[in-house]
């Protein structure tokens, strides 16, 4: 009987102590924790090449642990020479403006019918060139530079092995800094433990 009373007292004391100490301890652990981010990059067009590298380089600049899993068309972003192009076709939100000439000319938004964009050979190359020129005029870092920044900042870049196999790529086509060739079972636990997880 006395032992039961002693145990109850002990439990109450322990519970009270935990209530006192635990919040501050948890807060301390949280504040000392390095934030982390996991990105799944699935797209390989020029306009979609920017977001994963911009977010990853920014997170790294802030000291976050960052990982990117490149799968499907996102795998192209790991090629030694990034072949990404942009297609205005089927992308009505994309402004069609010229990066040269007088200001009124540059400000003019060119109406481009889908028929024209789909029918003219080389339209994507022209659109890609115009987008690159526009970004360069504005001083925006290129995709290659952003990837270099990410690599310099130790962003963990992993490639989807299954996609490599399916599309018939060879690992020699990719930058040597690719940390590993893995599957979803590898990356999901990384994503699970991350504070921020983004699918791009």
């Amino acid at each position: 009987m006395n032992t039961q009373v002693a145990n109850t007292d002990m439990d109450q004391w322990l519970s009270q102590k935990l209530d006192e100490l635990l919040p501050s301890k948890l807060q301390e652990i949280e504040s000392n924790k390095t934030p982390s981010m996991a990105i799944i990059a699935t797209k390989g067009t020029l306009d979609w090449a920017y977001p994963p590298f911009i977010l990853a380089s920014t997170a790294s600049a802030l000291g976050w642990d960052t990982s990117i899993f490149f799968t499907f068309y996102g795998l192209l972003l790991l090629k030694k020479d990034i072949p990404s192009q942009v297609s205005p076709l089927g992308n009505p939100a994309m402004p069609m403006k010229m990066p040269f000439g007088p200001k009124w000319f540059q400000d003019f938004n060119w109406p481009m019918p889908n028929l024209l964009m789909a029918g003219i050979p080389g339209f994507e190359k022209v659109a890609t060139g115009l987008m690159k020129k526009t970004f360069k005029n504005k001083g925006v870092a290129t995709v290659e530079e952003l990837r270099d920044l990410c690599l310099e900042a130790d962003v963990n870049m992993v490639a989807c092995q299954m996609t490599v196999d399916v599309f018939g790529f060879d690992s020699s086509e990719f930058i040597p800094e690719v940390t590993d060739y893995v599957g979803a079972t590898y990356f999901l636990p990384v994503a699970q433990k991350s504070d921020v997880c983004l699918f791009i």
Binding site: Y50, I54, S57, T58, A61, G139, L146
Partner: peptide
């Protein structure tokens, strides 16, 4: 400049 894009100048 870290923003929605990364700008150098």
């Amino acid at each position: 400049y870290f923003s929605c894009l990364v700008r150098k100048q």
